[in-house]
Nucleic acid binder design. Structure first.
Lengths: 152, 152
DNA sequence: GCGATTTCACCAATGATTGTTGATTGACAA
DNA sequence: TTGTCAATCAACAATCATTGGTGAAATCGC
């Protein structure tokens, strides 16, 4: 993901204004590898700006996604998660227990639809989701890690 | 997926009663390869039983999933889809345009998390989603196929 | 400085799914 | 055949994540 400064430029260049709350969100996303939901971003942003509204967070996340600076991803855990890592192609590890998501930067060269098996589909991309237990849920295999359980 | 008769036995064996509406749903799912949503199952069932309620459909689909006779799957299209093919492991082709889903029965032997890349996760399974355009949306590349557009 | 954009709080609506009610039906074991 | 309990129905409300509206206040950037 780009730095807050670069994002500021991009926003300006696209005709958007750069407000304090937007910059706050830029900062929150910077280096975040937890694939936060909009709620989680809002919670983190609120720590820096108590009055920032959930609406604004949703709006800015969509702006960022529209500009291709972050990716919105749905791994079947109910809410949309946002992935600041949009530079190197990767897959995902998803915890069955707490729903946490981590990047898996691995290339699978053999991952393609065999000839004749595509059922007429014009295939564009492949995403792999590995499901299992994250380190915390694996250890305390009945009680998920508190922070993770809090819908992180 | 098992035959309606087998499902009838399984339901009885698990202490569930086998009603006309449940059998109707068994029949609807039988051989259905479209990965129908609950709504779609309800629509199809309604053609055989006009009074069957959506509630009952949801309930029965969950019963079937609980017994492992069908799989509930979420490919990021908003609604949960139900897959009667639970016997051979497979992946999915998803249409970006109309959201239709098809099975892809292919084994990817190299699909594993490399040593040391698992970030501490205890990985259990891998699902691949290939995204692209289904035959209908590919041809009429602006207007999705009517039946498919109707939330099939 | 000025105008257009953005934000705010508040509240309502969406769409998929689940829960509640109370009355009726019907499956199935005895 | 019958009694019991599960299942169903209609109708309605509630959930949760997300989006939409309002009007007023703030503020970005030319």
């Amino acid at each position: 993901m780009r730095t807050p400064e670069e994002l500021t430029e991009r926003f300006r260049a696209s005709g958007r204004k750069v407000t304090a709350q937007r910059q706050c969100i830029f900062r929150v996303l910077q280096g975040d590898e937890t694939h936060p939901s909009a709620e989680a971003v809002h919670a983190a942003a609120s720590r820096q700006m108590e009055t920032i509204s959930l609406k604004t967070v949703y709006q800015t996340l969509h702006d960022l996604a529209e500009l291709g600076e972050i990716a919105a991803l749905d791994v079947g855990t109910g809410r949309t998660r946002f992935d600041p890592n949009v530079d190197d192609p990767h897959h995902h590890l998803v915890c069955r227990s707490c729903g946490s998501v981590r990047d898996l930067v691995v290339d699978f060269p053999d991952l393609a639809v065999p000839d004749g098996a595509d059922l007429g589909f014009l295939v564009g991309s492949a995403e792999v989701v590995f499901r299992g237990l994250c380190p915390f849920c694996r250890d305390s295999s009945r009680a998920p890690e508190p922070a993770a359980a809090a819908r992180t």
